[in-house]
């Protein structure tokens, strides 16, 4: 069970969270102006990386806030968590990843 650091409540067990899919996909301001292909891209096309993935989680059984997580899909290491609207942290040095997951568990 993952230990996820909610930006509001601190580290909490995965049981309290729900997964919210890939992060940083903004709803187009004017959907009507998009052609079908662009709309389909927004609706359906998602990355599926082995490695670092920006994704949304919601602390549904906690403060109920959505927030963003950078997680390594291969190792489950969580590199960063940050509030909606905040800039994602700079691309992480692969060497730092291990450190991050390790410090994550300590919190």
């Amino acid at each position: 069970m993952l230990l996820i650091k909610c930006p509001f409540c601190g580290p909490r067990p995965e049981l309290e969270f729900s997964y919210g899919g890939q992060a940083h996909i903004a709803r187009p301001k004017d959907p009507a102006s998009l052609d079908d292909e662009s709309w389909a891209e927004y609706l359906y096309i998602r990355s599926n990386p082995k490695g670092l993935h920006a994704e949304r989680w919601r602390h549904i059984h906690g403060c109920a806030r959505f927030f963003n997580v950078q997680r390594n899909t291969a190792s489950d290491a969580i590199v960063a968590t940050y509030k909606i609207g905040e800039e994602p942290p700079k691309p992480v040095d692969p060497g730092l990843e291990e450190w991050s997951s390790r410090s994550g568990a300590a919190l």
Binding site: R27, R56, R58, R65, F66, I84
Partner: peptide, 13 residues
């Protein structure tokens, strides 16, 4: 409720 909160928190704050 989850979908409403989603839009409210992440798109229309």
């Amino acid at each position: 409720l989850a979908l409403m909160e989603d839009y409210l928190q992440t798109e229309w704050s």
